[in-house]
Design a protein around this nucleic acid. Structure first.
Lengths: 135, 135
DNA sequence: TTAAATGCAAACGGTTTGCATTTAT
DNA sequence: ATAAATGCAAACCGTTTGCATTTAA
């Protein structure tokens, strides 16, 4: 256990959900600019390996690391503002388990991503559309 | 409409589901080795833009392109043999819509990925474990 | 005729690794 | 003492783009 590792672990859990390597690196640098990017990366991988986090991939080129919480949850991913919102899915996981069982598939992990537009982006778009008409 | 484009479109739909750019490129090259990789890539993007396919991202570094079918479906992704199996999820999408509605979220797309181990990989592992013991 | 499509090569960007050095144990 | 962790720089690899050339309409 090195001081860097402790700092990285601590920072990861302070940052909350959906952390990217770059974000974590920035955060860690604030405290100690000497820490290397690869150290951050390797420790993030380690956090995953010991089961404290998992990778989330939205297909936008950046890997996010999501703290594994007690509750299974899905993600609402706004295509416009890119914000990620979580929602619980207790009732859904049962159905998914059932589906997997039909294929004799041993489930290790479930990821549900719903993409679309959040309320505030839609509101903004409406406002912009209206402004456009009156100009 | 160029001959390359027609060939690429045709090849994409012949290949079936979960096609990667590289796979499609290889397939197209069999017929016409002069076609460029970027042409394949751009046409695959085009196929997505016109709504005939969508990107699937399993987090393994390669983007797959999945023909959009009539039925909503999820993926069973074997962590060992990497095979992708589809399963229907009519009953699940209703629940997901419900969840999204609670957040006033306008759903554009839903992705469900279940990772784990398929039957045949598990069987193989059992056999290997047994062999290991008797050696 | 001309805007669109193509092919090549190179840029890009996040991820991953090799290696010399440092450090926890 | 020694195996593990670190930091740097570079490699990696799939994706994306600039640009000169070709081509469909």
């Amino acid at each position: 256990m090195t001081p860097q590792r402790e700092m990285i672990f601590r920072a990861f859990f302070e940052l909350g959900e959906h952390v990217t390597v770059a974000e974590l690196y920035r955060k860690v640098c604030e405290k100690n600019p000497a820490v290397g990017y690869s150290t951050v990366w390797r420790n993030l991988k380690l956090i995953c390996k010991v089961g404290l986090a998992e990778e989330v991939n939205l297909g936008d080129g950046v890997t996010r690391y999501d703290r594994i919480t007690r509750q299974p949850h899905g993600h609402l991913y706004c295509l416009q503002c890119k914000k990620l919102t979580e929602f619980e899915m207790n009732s859904i996981t049962d159905l998914l388990d059932l589906a997997a069982k039909q294929y004799d598939f041993a489930v290790e992990g479930v990821k549900v991503e719903i993409s679309g537009y959040c309320r505030s982006c839609r509101k903004m778009n409406e406002r912009l559309a209206k402004d456009g008409r009156t100009n």
